[in-house]
Structures are given as C-alpha cells and as structure tokens.
C-alpha cells in the first residue's frame, strides 16, 4: 500500500527533525505579564524580581507552559517550508480531508526558562494513522512532536495529535442518490440525539429491553419520555420493561427519497403497545402490501454498533403472544 498520503508520511517521518526556527523575541517579562494575567497564575516567581530572587530559582523564570508561546509565528507568520505538520496538512487537504480537530496535546518540561533566553523550536512527524472512520467523518490522525531548545539543550517537548477529516455530508448538500429505487443508501444511519432524559431508553435497547417511562409519583406511562410528569408534576421518572408486543396503529411505506442506511421501499409503523403508549419503528419481515392497521407485531432489536441498538418491529411469531 503506497498511496500518496502514506508515501508522504513515510518520507517526512524519515527526514526527522526540521530545521530549528528561532523565537521572535527572547523570553521576556512583558509577554509573561500578559500570559499570567490571562491564565490567572499569580505565582510571583514569574513577575516579582525580589520574591523570585528569594525563591529556589534565584531570579525570574518563565512559566514552563509558555514554551509554545515563545515560538508562535504571530498573526502574519508563515510555517517553515519543511514544517511536517504543514506539509502533511497540505497533502491531506488535497485528498479531501479538509477539516481539522486537535485530539491530544502532551507537554514535557525539562527546566524553567530564564528571562532573556533565546529559544528555538524544531518539529518532527511521528506518524500518520488512517484512514479511520470517526464520528466526525473519515480521517487520518497526524502526530507530530516539537522540541524547544536553548542553544543545543532541549528545554521542553510536546506531542501533538490532530485528526484531519473529511466532514460528513452537510445538510444543505443534496442526499447522495442511490443508483436505483431499490438500492441501499451507503450513507451512515441517522443517529438519535441522546440526552439525560432519554438515555434509559437507549441503554435498554442495547441490552434487549424495550423500556417505557413510568412516573415514579403517579405511575403514568409515557412515550416519548420527558423529565417532568404532565399528570402529577413529579420529576422522578422510572421505567418498566415492555413485553414488546403491540399492534400497528398506523404505518407508512417509504418510497422516496433515499434514506441513509435503508433499502427502498421500507415500512415505518406506529405501534400501540399492549401497555398503552405508542412507539415508532421500522417494520420488517413482511411485504409492504401485507401490512395493515391492527397487525400484531413484536419488538426486535437491531444492533447498529457498540453505541446504538434500534428497536424495530416484526410480525408476531408463533408463541410470542402473552
């Protein structure tokens, strides 16, 4: 496998450390003053010469976490031509991985910097891992390391990892059409937003339980659920585990447009559970033209991945009655 991304990554990693870039200014008190003010760090060893002189440092030092500050390029600065993250970013963007999110940043400090010291920084590509399917989209993890020097002495290091990814389809773009009406869309499934008030339901489906919210105050059953009982006002929702049996109350045969993760046509049924509440789900295991209101159904759980299991319906099988 030697695609352009892997190839470039190998070449840059093999080149090792980039040429060291000098900091714009020596380690200096005005910059430190601004930084500690912004960070709310009141340690006098950074700003008070008298107290710093009496400390273990015997004089003013810079906050170690400022390492990166000294070598920032400034508003109009350019990356060095051999900067590995810059080169790798360009290659990935050309391949369509246009978005970026930082995922890891680990810093190591070897010693405190003294005021007046001149810092340089070098960068090295550690590795490029991918393509990986992430929640944000398909992408590559790019890990670089930086070393800060005073003279030839390393004073700080940083491991920095970003995910360069191809964003998932944006809503304003048209859905990618399937090749035929009966085709299966290759888009990932639509996932539910899961919140504090609804997590119990999805935790249930993941272990094969169809849970119905039941008020801890008055016993009202309710679906979809919510945090406050509309009957008695209690904010103490519990749940019961449904037998998973019900009847089709209404249904739709969806023909158009294509739906992420589903083959056309498919049936969505609104099912009235034996316990009372209604619940929506895909109805499978029956030809669309045979579906009718009143059809007895039972729940079936379809595992999408580690985080999501969908409740669906299928016609009741022998012996699944109460």
């Amino acid at each position: 496998m030697s695609d352009p991304i892997t190839e470039t990554a190998r070449r840059i990693a093999a080149a090792g450390e980039s040429v060291r870039t000098p900091a714009r200014d020596p380690v200096n008190r005005p910059m430190i003053n601004n930084w500690v003010e912004a960070m709310g760090d009141a340690n006098p060893v950074y700003t008070d010469p008298d107290r710093a002189a009496r400390s273990v440092h015997n004089g003013l030092v810079a906050p170690p976490a400022m390492a990166q500050v000294w070598t920032m390029r400034g508003l109009h600065g350019q990356r060095a031509a051999d900067d590995p993250l810059g080169v790798m970013t360009k290659v990935l963007e050309d391949a369509g991985f246009t978005s970026v999110v930082a995922t890891n940043c680990e810093q190591t400090y070897h010693r405190y910097l003294l005021h007046g010291e001149q810092v340089t920084v070098s960068a090295r590509l550690e590795n490029v891992v991918g393509p990986k399917n992430t929640a944000l989209g398909e992408g590559y993890f790019v890990t670089t390391s930086n070393t800060w020097y005073v003279g030839d002495e390393p004073v700080a290091e940083m491991l920095f990892r970003v995910l360069k990814f191809r964003p998932s389809r944006r809503p304003e773009e048209p859905a990618s059409p399937t090749t035929a009406e009966s085709g299966t869309s290759s888009e990932p499934v639509i996932r539910p937003v899961i919140g504090k008030d609804t997590a119990y339901f999805w935790e249930g489906t993941s272990i094969g339980e169809l849970r119905i919210q039941r008020c801890g105050g008055c016993g009202l059953m309710r679906h979809p659920p919510g945090p406050m009982c509309p009957e008695c006002g209690a904010t103490n929702p519990k749940f019961l585990v449904s037998h998973g049996l019900g009847e089709v109350y209404s249904y739709v045969v969806h023909h158009h447009p294509p739906m992420p993760g589903k083959a056309l046509p498919y049936v969505v049924a609104l099912v009235e559970l034996d316990e009372g509440p209604r619940m929506l789900g895909e109805l499978t295991g029956i030809a669309p033209e045979e579906v009718h209101i009143g059809l007895p159904v039972e729940v079936a759980f379809v595992r999408v991945d580690d985080e999501l299991t969908m409740p669906t319906w299928r016609p009741r099988t022998e012996g699944s009655g109460r």
Binding site: R191, V193, P224, P260, K262, V268, M279
Partner: peptide
C-alpha cells in the same frame, strides 16, 4: 439529517422518528 442532530429538545424529539426512518 441535521435536524436529528440538534442538541435541543427538538433534536431529542426527532430522535424518536428520524432514526426509525
């Protein structure tokens, strides 16, 4: 698709319908 992803009460509401098709 985006309507199902909103971190709002509406997004939660849509979570009972959109993912089901």
């Amino acid at each position: 698709t985006a309507a199902a992803r909103q971190p709002t009460s509406t997004g939660l509401d849509n979570g009972w319908h959109y993912p089901m098709g």
